[in-house]
Design a protein around this nucleic acid. Sequence first.
DNA 1: ATTTTGATGTCGAAA
DNA 2: TTTCGACGTCAAAAT
Lengths: 231, 231
Amino acid sequence: MRLVIATCSVDYDGRLTAHLPLAKRLLLVKADGSVLVHSDGGSYKPLNWMSPPCAMAEVEPDDLEAAEGVAAVWVVQHAKSEDRLRVRIHEVHHDSDHELGVDPGLVKDGVEAHLQRLLAEHITTLGDGWTLTRREYMTPIGPVDILCKDARGATVAIEIKRRGDIDGVEQLTRYLELMNRDPHLAPVTGVFAAQAIRPQARTLAEDRGIRCVVLDYDALRGIDSSEHRLF
Amino acid sequence: MRLVIATCSVDYDGRLTAHLPLAKRLLLVKADGSVLVHSDGGSYKPLNWMSPPCAMAEVEPDDLEAAEGVAAVWVVQHAKSEDRLRVRIHEVHHDSDHELGVDPGLVKDGVEAHLQRLLAEHITTLGDGWTLTRREYMTPIGPVDILCKDARGATVAIEIKRRGDIDGVEQLTRYLELMNRDPHLAPVTGVFAAQAIRPQARTLAEDRGIRCVVLDYDALRGIDSSEHRLF
DNA sequence: ATTTTGATGTCGAAA
DNA sequence: TTTCGACGTCAAAAT
């Protein structure tokens, strides 16, 4: 990985045409030849870039560029398309190279899916005598996370979110409206379960007669006997 | 902008939970406090990151971390949510700081918009006697780029793309189907106009009776008297 | 290999 | 401020 801080202008031509006026920026050249142009702000998206597979070549500035003070020109050409990037470097403030090796990669915990599985396996945490009917119960407008029955045998639909927000309550409400129109299922009550429930979401849910449950991920995981240290 | 090459592990906790095992990576700290973690490959998207507004604080490793060889810990906390990033640094291989200043920002040439304006102003390039009805003609499923009439007075819908691809033909087809169900408009024919049209897209379009037109941007701009060197 | 779907999407414009 | 759609979307899963 090569890191260059340089005063430069950049032109991209491909699916669109874009231009970056002369300014001081970070140029990041990765081992696969891809190039990122970053400014000191904004989001993680570079101002301009070239994705792999591509090749970076340093060429001599032409007469016009030389006259404008361009010291070096990078041409980055995509291998499979006509996309290309032209970086005109006026001044280099920093230039260093670093050997990084292959990255082991990101591990994403599917928290919502995991919560659903844990809660389904321990449905009695919602109340004694509760029984699981099924997970991912399909309806015409999408799957209900968990369908179960309470101690009295009444049907309950559960919506699970990592963060309990208004839109999750709205989603559960739509399911409940639909299911309560089905005489085989009605009456169906709702449970809104999340690791954290925002006050507005709680207010809305309770106003609609939906019970709110805050899930303790670690506690659920703790009582899960099948959890024998997977990683 | 601070550039650090370090052997580190990273944990993100927020909308999801994610973990990066110990490896040598680039840590990029921007002036606004945002942090990007990049490996030497992949796309322009970092392995992990924190978007502004956020604050980065360097804290002492706890006993457990110290025992594992952690030399320093960065905690990056988002200002408006519970999202946080924890970077455990084992070894620093490079650390440099650079003053970049404010970036003048990206200039995107709105080529498609420009093409639309130019073609609307020179609609007769499609045929003598053709007349413009309007640009951005609204339908319930979106705006038709240009609506016009041919020499015989029949309505024509034009879809304009920089690159003529299958999906552009599908889009125009949807418009034509809809408009031809309207007795006030029907019959409506279609023109698919682009700077370059892929063979598959041309085949599909012509199979559906849609005329394909390759636009010459420079020629259209050349005949445009209003184009008096804007930049 | 191709299509569809989700994203810590991001980003900008319109309402 | 919120909503909506497009993106140089990208990337993974499903077909």
